[in-house]
């Protein structure tokens, strides 16, 4: 009798354990994600924030110096030059990619022959690494052997195209190389958007006698809003990340003419051993991203909610 009771109790305990195990499985499976989110993402950002308010140089110091590093950062000529470069680069790069990508998408959308080949050609640079394409453009743009020399050999002896060694124009060469690499991406995204537009709109526009270019500009482009937004976010994150191309093309030179924030941070983390200043720079970068991307994300989630509630 007693043995039977004990067995029953044991069985109940086992059942409870099994239930617990089943309930806890999803939690166990999400453990790696939780760890990475809490330590890898949240933790590291807070850590950098803390370091940026310390006086750490080569080794972490655990003091608190308030915003001193930020004041130092904005008194640093190299940092200011980096910011200015990034702003100029960002505007030119994003606008050029969007315009060229849109034009390519619209022209491809005209039921042209060889569409598949053209799309492959416009997008292949995006499959390569920024280092590789940077090195190719460095080769193309070097005045001694590149395009300048070639045009001179064709008989235009005064031809000049030495932007990559010109302090005032070197940023434009980085714009050219990266636009070449990324505008195919915009083309792919916008083309997908164009294909999703209702044919009825074209019919209606034809009946009203509106010229094609007008339809694209006034009707189709606004309808592509979400696709353009997606492309913008992708391009914007590429702007903030800008590092590989600069390292491959100019190493920040001539002088400091093509320095960018990401490179400033890396140099101060590893080469110049000033981790507090570097961390302050990285927090500024994060702040910029937050300010520029947050409104967009907000608008997007609002739109998603509205769609869901309809």
């Amino acid at each position: 009798m007693r043995a039977k009771l004990r067995l029953l109790r044991l069985l109940r305990l086992l059942r409870l354990l099994r239930l617990l195990r089943r309930k806890s499985m999803p939690y166990a499976a999400l453990l790696p994600m939780a760890l990475i989110v809490l330590v890898g993402y949240l933790g590291t950002v807070l850590w950098s924030l803390k370091v940026s308010m310390s006086s750490s140089r080569t080794f972490p110091a655990h003091d608190f110096v308030g915003l001193t590093q930020y004041a130092r950062l904005f008194g640093n000529e190299r940092w200011l030059q980096s910011l200015e470069n990034l702003a100029l680069y960002g505007v030119l790069f994003i606008v050029a990619c969007l315009v060229i990508g849109f034009l390519l998408a619209v022209f491809i959308d005209q039921k042209v022959a060889g569409e598949g080949v053209l799309r492959t050609v416009f997008l292949y640079p995006y499959a390569m690494s920024f280092v590789a394409t940077g090195l190719v453009w460095q080769w193309l743009l070097n005045p001694g052997n590149g395009i300048q020399q070639a045009v001179r050999l064709w008989g235009y002896a005064d031809f000049e195209f030495d932007w990559i060694v010109d302090q005032d124009k070197v940023m434009y060469t980085i714009v050219i190389a990266t636009v070449w690499q990324a505008s195919g991406l915009v083309m792919a995204i916008l083309l997908a958007g164009l294909r999703g537009i209702d044919e009825e709109i074209w019919k209606a526009a034809r009946i009203d006698g509106i010229p094609t270019w007008r339809v694209y500009l006034s009707i189709v482009l606004p309808m592509l809003g979400p696709s353009v937004g997606t492309a913008f976010v992708l391009l914007f994150t590429a702007v903030v990340k800008l590092f590989d191309s600069v390292v491959a093309m100019t190493q920040g030179g001539p002088g400091i003419a093509s320095e960018v924030p990401a490179k400033f941070i890396m140099d101060h983390l590893f080469g110049r051993a000033n981790i507090a200043l570097a961390s302050a720079g990285s927090i500024m970068l994060l702040l910029t991203v937050t300010i520029l991307v947050a409104p967009f994300m907000y608008a997007r989630s609002r739109a998603a909610h509205r769609k869901a509630s309809q």
């Binding site: 993402y41 590291t44 950098s48 990285s282 991307v293």
Partner: peptide, 24 residues
């Protein structure tokens, strides 16, 4: 909530995370 933070994490510039990750 975790997923939401992870999605925002996609926008964090790597430079912010590099030094702490090296330490970890």
């Amino acid at each position: 909530l975790l997923f939401g933070i992870l999605m925002m994490g996609a926008f964090i510039p790597v430079q912010v995370m590099i030094y702490p990750l090296v330490q970890i």
